[in-house]
């Protein structure tokens, strides 16, 4: 993995400022809650997120 755990958490926090969920958190969640499902690649995860994020609800104010 990239860097230490603290560094990863900082980077993940900055990403989440812009609304981007964390891939490793998602993978951990899948393994724990839905062990039967296949794990998407990071690319697939990113694409699904982008599609869902800019859907039908306003995410930004004036």
């Amino acid at each position: 993995m990239r860097g230490s755990a603290t560094w990863r958490r900082i980077l993940s926090g900055i990403r989440r400022l812009a609304g981007m969920p964390d891939y490793t958190v998602y993978v951990e969640h899948l393994q724990r809650a839905h062990p039967d499902r296949s794990i998407p690649s990071e690319r697939q995860f990113y694409e699904d997120f982008v599609r869902a994020r800019y859907g039908d609800a306003p995410t930004r104010c004036c």
Binding site: V25, E28, H29, R53
Partner: peptide, 8 residues
């Protein structure tokens, strides 16, 4: 409803 994407 945690799903690792919007519910986190």
């Amino acid at each position: 409803l945690m799903n690792g994407r919007d519910f986190v």
